[in-house]
């Protein structure tokens, strides 16, 4: 009855069929998002966090464990792959609302990363990583 790491990451609440399709969907979303990132988006997303020093501290720890994500375009693409509407949000409040939705969905689907022992949503960890890079 061992649960695999993959299953943990992809979400216990998704059905088997969804789990099989999920990597494809995410890969497609990643590529589509990467090619359509608004130029000021990274800054707008980071500004939704009020305390950038905390975000940078968490982000730096995340990037130490995930060095392959130390790239603005990669991070943005992964963030937008999960929530394309982020690219069109106009206010910090609206952005926060969308991010909050992503974070909660991450936890619901157990898309969780351990950063310095803290179990964080992938979205918040990547958002913090973005704060390090912009």
């Amino acid at each position: 009855m061992r649960r695999s790491r993959r299953r943990f990451l992809r979400g216990a609440l998704l059905g088997a069929a969804t789990s099989l399709l999920d990597p494809l969907r995410r890969a497609w979303g990643f590529e589509a998002a990467r090619s359509a990132v608004p130029p000021d988006l990274a800054r707008r997303l980071v500004q939704s966090l009020r305390d950038s020093s905390s975000a940078r501290a968490v982000g730096a720890a995340y990037l130490r464990t995930m060095p392959d994500e130390a790239d603005v375009q990669t991070l943005l693409a992964r963030l937008l792959g999960d929530q394309p509407a982020l690219s069109g949000s106009r206010s910090a409040a609206a952005t926060r609302k969308l991010l909050r939705r992503c974070i909660r969905a991450d936890f619901a689907g157990e898309r969780v990363v351990a950063v310095d022992g803290w179990l964080l949503a992938e979205t918040e960890a990547r958002l913090c990583a973005l704060a390090v890079l912009v």
């Binding site: 939704s48 305390d51 905390s54 975000a55 968490v58 991010l99 909050r100 974070i103 918040e124 913090c128």
Partner: peptide, 11 residues
């Protein structure tokens, strides 16, 4: 941990 909480609280 304070940073983690701050990030979570921000959102």
């Amino acid at each position: 941990g304070v940073h983690v909480r701050q990030v979570a609280a921000d959102l």
